[in-house]
Nucleic acid binder design. Structure first.
Lengths: 207, 207
DNA sequence: GTCTATAAGGAGATAGAC
DNA sequence: GTCTATCTCCTTATAGAC
């Protein structure tokens, strides 16, 4: 961290780190101040409340994540390859910062008010639903052509998100009872990514 | 609640409900006392600390969940049918109390010390690992016979747990952006259970 | 066994000096 | 803009009367 940045930015920077690591309620403004190297009153001078600080920290981050919800759809490859790319893409987003998945589940999904706010701010937009519609059309066309079995796009997306999110939530904690203690986290995640792709693709292929 | 039960049991009963609904840190001993109808000091008289109360509440519940980790394996039906039964079984366990999945993620998986404790107490036992070994042998045999594609048992289990847990975590909050607001929660869960079974089974069938 | 009272500490937030 | 001091509230936990 650059100690010469202005304090407001340093507060944002530290708050982001602590919120991600210890959660919102697990982080006190006092602690943020201590790490920043200022006093606790200054946090409130700049951001008034802790909740507002939270949104000031994560609004830009969420914008960025929502950007990612439109993965580049390379039209030159077939549907299954496109799907593989999408999975790689989402997985990659969460891999950029491994604290992101636990954060999303804990602070957004688990917290009704925050989730509503997030949903209204970022998921209800025109571009959002049209992106989903495009995906839906793509899946329906493919099913009609008989290259994949008939599935609803929403179910497919839920399965994909479930598997990817869980890879970062469940697994790091050694859900496998010692099975993945010996291998590195990187290897573990690589393995999960490939297995999830295999799972999804195999589940779609027409028998 | 039977108001005539002894207070110790009523504290356990109330604590369980509040811990499940509002999480451990979101529940104060003061609030538990208020609901029980006694004073807050009594909580500490019986359970000494809040953390000990937590384990006294959930140890029996965890015993029960771990029991369930050995689903009845009906040897008279084929492997895929057995797998369907297993998925139904796990899904049913979480459906018994829908607050259980969020609780497991929030209080156990997300909390390193608790997870270690849970793991050491309940998952590292002899019967636990031998149950997994039996499952592993079953999967390996089936793959060798060629009825399913070759998968590692641990990957299969991770995928199953990921999908089931997420069904209770992600979905209730309307991940689908309005898509599942209109249908009942029961319908939603039924749909997810069937879709997950289809997904897993389809992903296993040999091409 | 159950109570009141209170200790001891931490939280978020604000007032006001500089 | 940054500080100290403080307010108010709430937490877990304990001491001691009954």
């Amino acid at each position: 961290m650059d100690r010469n940045q202005n304090i407001e930015k340093r507060i944002l920077w530290v708050a982001e780190r602590l919120f991600l690591e210890k959660g919102f309620s697990g982080t006190s403004t006092t602690e943020i101040a201590k790490v920043v190297g200022c006093n606790q009153a200054l946090i409130h001078y700049y951001f008034r409340t802790k909740e507002k600080l939270f949104w000031d920290v994560f609004a830009p981050k969420m914008e960025q994540v929502v950007e990612y919800l439109d993965p580049p759809l390379d039209e030159s490859v077939d549907f299954l390859e496109r799907l593989r790319n999408i999975i790689d893409f989402y997985f990659g987003v969460l891999e950029l910062d491994e604290r992101l998945a636990p954060f999303i589940v804990n602070e957004l999904v688990m917290n009704p008010e925050r989730w509503d706010m997030f949903r209204n701010r970022y998921l209800r937009s025109e571009s959002r639903s049209s992106a989903f519609k495009r995906f839906e059309v793509m899946v329906d066309e493919e099913a009609a052509r008989g290259t994949i079995r008939s599935v609803k796009a929403i179910d497919l997306l839920l399965n994909i998100f479930s598997l990817i999110l869980s890879a970062f939530i469940i697994a790091p904690k050694g859900f496998a009872s010692g099975e993945c203690d010996s291998i590195s986290r990187k290897d573990y995640l690589d393995h999960r990514r490939e297995d999830i792709k295999g799972m999804i693709i195999n589940g779609l292929i027409q028998k």
